[in-house]
Design a protein around this nucleic acid. Structure first.
Lengths: 197, 197
DNA sequence: GTCTATATTGCGATAGAC
DNA sequence: GTCTATCGCAATATAGAC
């Protein structure tokens, strides 16, 4: 009945895996920081891998908002903007999720079919459809390649967060999330907008 | 005198580290694939970490071209386009370098001050200056934030490669590097271009 | 230079007392 | 549920023969 230990282990695992990645974190590290015994991880989760998966899935719930059924009813521009806003919000409220996704980028083979990948797939489809509709209704350029445009948007929004750690080491310029996203989306929308002749 | 073993170990190390990352590759894996004894790694490089650093630095030489002194003399547009072209070329000719850089994005703390980071810093400065000059000479929008614009460009160009492994699992759309880069840079340049009133 | 053999460490996992 | 103790394994690194 005392599941406090399980919860603590999970939240510590999320914290440490997000920061250092799967390989660099031992179950002993997690147990120590959670003030629990390392054998409790086997007891509650079965294995280190299962604990990681549990951590990943718990974080994945945060992509829910963007994927709500009402999203598809929005205009193409609104959907693309919502994607950017949602990622910005997720990062503010829960930076660890982005860390997990980044780790997945790096070692995709580690966890073949996770919940998070299914979510990402849905996100990609939503964006692609929005771009396609935007072209059809005349608001975006006709010569846009849908796949490429989707990657450009994803790159603009995600690279900022993916590269943050490295950037702060290289450059002395301080980040301003609000400012970046506004500037970036202006460039993006100006770049895909249909020109008046 | 017979340094063939050393060279083989290094090239195998580059291959394996790029593919699986530092943690997932053991010195035994490297030695086996190089048909050498694992103790040869200590003999030639001292440690696994030193071998990794050697692999990283050897790869970093490939960023040279973009950083040649003649680059700074080009027009802002040309410099930004050259950045995209160079990364595309690097990836085609030497995909392992990009893998290394991707690993550095994920675990930047692992190797505090590497050669590669100095190169990246120089690249960032070149791009920033190009954007700044483009604003001054009236070819780019005046309201551009230099830092944000530089990250947008870097994101557009790099995210495509960073995300490739994961994307191919999620989406069935085949990549076409040439097509992507052309589309992406058109969006980018249209997005930062100064509008005629 | 290259090999075998081994020292040493740290890992994930589990058995079993309480 | 939680602990101690330990097993079994794989890793890096090294000592020493050749």
């Amino acid at each position: 009945m005392k599941q406090a230990t399980k919860e603590t282990l999970l939240s510590v695992a999320i914290e440490l895996f997000a920061e250092y990645g799967y390989d660099k974190v031992s179950i002993r590290d997690i147990a120590e920081k959670a003030k629990a015994n390392s054998s409790m991880i086997s007891y509650y989760f079965g294995s280190k891998q299962n604990l990681y998966d549990a951590a990943l899935e718990k974080q994945a719930g945060n992509l829910q908002e963007f994927l709500s059924p009402s999203t598809v009813a929005l205009s193409p521009q609104k959907i693309l903007q919502l994607y950017a806003d949602t990622l910005q919000e997720i990062h503010e409220k829960n930076p660890t999720l982005m860390k997990f996704i980044c780790w997945e980028f790096k070692t995709p083979s580690a966890h073949p079919e996770t919940f998070i990948k299914q979510r990402l797939k849905r996100v990609y489809e939503l964006i692609s459809q929005a771009i396609s509709r935007g072209i059809d209704d005349g608001s975006f350029r006709e010569d846009l390649d849908i796949h490429s445009t989707a990657i450009v948007l994803a790159g603009i929004v995600n690279f900022y967060y993916i590269s943050r750690d490295l950037r702060t080491r290289i450059s002395s310029v301080a980040d301003n999330d609000e400012c970046y996203m506004k500037q970036a989306m202006k460039i993006f929308f100006d770049g895909i907008k249909r020109r008046q002749l």
